[in-house]
Design a binder for these strands. Structure first.
Length: 491
RNA sequence: CGGGGUGUGGCGCAGCCCGGUUAGCGCGUCUGCUUUGGGAGCAGAAGGCCGCAGGUUCGAAUCCUGCCACCCCGACCA
């Protein structure tokens, strides 16, 4: 193979990068820590956007767009929020460049120093709440349920394609409500929506839960999350939904008159998922042969590879292939006939394999003769020969099978890598030997949480919403605990 | 910011310790012929200010000095 992919067992990080690069999802950029999302990766993102956007709209949300630049002073308004984000902000200080003194390059023109610095948004709560203050006077103006698709910048020290880059794409929802209950309901509604999207479309099983104080979003009252488990046994936060209480309303003096003619601060939520989900997708399903995509999000669901040798075989094969292509297309299946000349069939097989196309059909002279098609599944890498007659039904069913079986496999992996422990020794042993989620009792203190993090690098991923667990005692301090919580080493 | 490393055709590297003709190799690219059911074979070709600046020397990719950039490992994080 020309571009060999490092096996997962040998070096997981290297494997991940190899998969992303060979599948042409992304490339490195000239700016350290940033990434170029290539067409294959962007189409995937567009598919994710389309589904999520539909879900947001079904639940009464509207899209809008707020500016990239935020006045520096805005960020400072909410105390916890500043503390959380100040350390990773890109700051614009000048509005133009000039040729430098020695004539060899450019430098910021000192005369163009900005009156107030602008921060490139790390998230948009502040600038949005500045607007909400102006838009909201009465309970009749509520709720406001806005989403925006945008890029954000967080100046990171250590970066990895999709999983952590300085600039990334995401959606951020920002809602304003008249009552606490309504805002909490919204937070949970979105959490469910995210879980449904990630499980049903991305085929990644998730745990829904709530973050501890130390892992909470800066400025939130409660942060809810969905947590997924990657193939190397590390957890990954796949989405967050925050109940912001009245923190931002207070910071931005956003009040409304309620039905009892009293002035009240507005209740808020915010929530987001990012291109990081693409990283989660890669790390959940892919294998040593490259990317594996769930059919429901794959830009190309089926690829048709014609095989012929002589000129007279060519038209025969291409006609048969095109007929299949039309039938699949009419059924609404994203199909591509790969009739490129110059690449040989074997080469195409490998290319589509590393790019994760769920189903490959091959049609050669023998198939035309026999009225058959060769069908190969990307997930199992198995091949079968099927009758050309019923191929559309067969393909449609296979796509559904793949979607389901990717989820099932990931769910099985997760349950095999979720361990319930009662002692700290067991806890440490589990982390070392097999990783994954570890369910243990915790006394609810930040001290114990920090100690565990320092000693084992494992963090509390969440307090699961789904309870049904018996009370117990903290595995270290012996203090009472009402439920077990999910620990893991995480991305 | 600490600790380590690397800069040589598009990509990945060798050469450097021990200075000496025309700087090699693999992949990719181009041309031609043969090929086409799992990344083809052969033949030929193009492509380099050896990171930048100075120095030593008859002569520097190689030795010396300074600078720059990037990567890895730590502290911070969706």
């Amino acid at each position: 193979m020309a571009d060999a992919i490092t096996p997962r067992g040998e070096d997981y990080s290297k494997w991940y990068i190899d998969v992303v690069l060979t599948a042409k999802l992304a490339d490195y950029s000239p700016v350290r820590g940033c990434m170029i999302i290539r067409p294959n990766g962007y189409q995937l993102w567009e598919n994710m956007q389309r589904v999520l956007d539909g879900m947001f709209k079904e639940t009464g949300h509207e899209n809008a767009y707020f500016p990239l630049f935020i006045p520096e002073s805005f960020l400072a308004r909410e105390a916890e929020h500043v503390e959380g984000f100040a350390k990773e902000c890109a700051v614009v200080t000048h509005s133009r460049l000039r040729v430098s003194e020695d004539g060899t390059g450019l430098e910021p023109d000192p005369d163009s120093r900005l009156e107030e610095n602008l921060v490139v948004r790390p998230t948009s709560e502040t600038i949005i709440w500045d607007s909400y203050r102006k838009w909201i006077q009465s309970w009749r103006d509520l709720p406001i349920k806005i989403n925006q698709w945008a890029n954000v910048v967080r100046w990171e020290m250590r970066t990895r394609l999709f999983l952590r880059t300085m600039e990334f794409l995401w959606q951020e929802g920002h809602t304003a409500h008249a009552t606490e209950q309504e805002a909490v309901d919204e937070t949970l509604l979105i959490l469910d929506l995210y879980a449904r999207f990630v499980e049903d479309y991305m085929a990644i099983p998730v745990i829904k839960g709530i973050k501890t104080e130390s892992e909470r979003f800066a400025g939130a009252v409660d942060t809810y999350c969905i947590e997924a488990l990657m193939q190397d046994g590390k957890a990954l936060q796949a989405g967050t939904s925050h109940f912001l209480g009245q923190n931002f309303a207070k910071a931005f003096d956003c009040t409304f008159q309620n039905q009892d003619n009293e002035l009240e601060h507005v209740w808020a939520t915010s929530w987001g998922v990012s291109t990081r989900l693409i990283g989660a997708l890669v790390m959940t399903h892919s294998d040593d042969h490259g990317l594996v995509l769930p059919p429901r999000l794959a830009p190309t669901q089926v690829v048709l590879v014609p095989i012929f040798r002589k000129e007279e075989e060519k038209s025969l094969v291409l006609d048969a292939a095109d007929k299949v292509r039309r039938e699949l297309s009419e059924r609404g299946i994203a199909v591509r006939l790969d009739d490129r000349e110059g690449q040989r069939p074997g080469w195409k097989f490998t290319e589509h394999e590393v790019q994760g196309v769920p189903v490959r059909l091959a049609i050669g002279p023998r198939d035309v003769q026999n009225g058959t098609v060769e069908l190969a599944r990307r997930d199992t890498r198995t091949k079968e020969t099927v009758a050309a007659d019923g191929v559309v039904d067969h393909v449609a069913k296979t796509l559904e099978d793949i979607q389901q079986s990717l989820f099932d496999r990931a769910a099985e992996f997760r349950s095999e890598h979720t361990t319930t422990v009662d002692s700290y020794d067991e806890f440490k042993d589990t982390l070392e030997s097999k990783g994954g989620f570890v369910l243990a009792h915790w006394d609810g203190t930040a001290e114990t949480e920090a100690r565990i993090k320092n000693e084992t690098k494992a963090t509390i991923r969440c307090l699961p919403l789904q309870k049904g667990d018996e009370p117990g005692v903290d595995m270290i301090t012996g203090k009472p605990s009402s439920q077990r919580v999910y620990f893991a080493r995480a991305y």
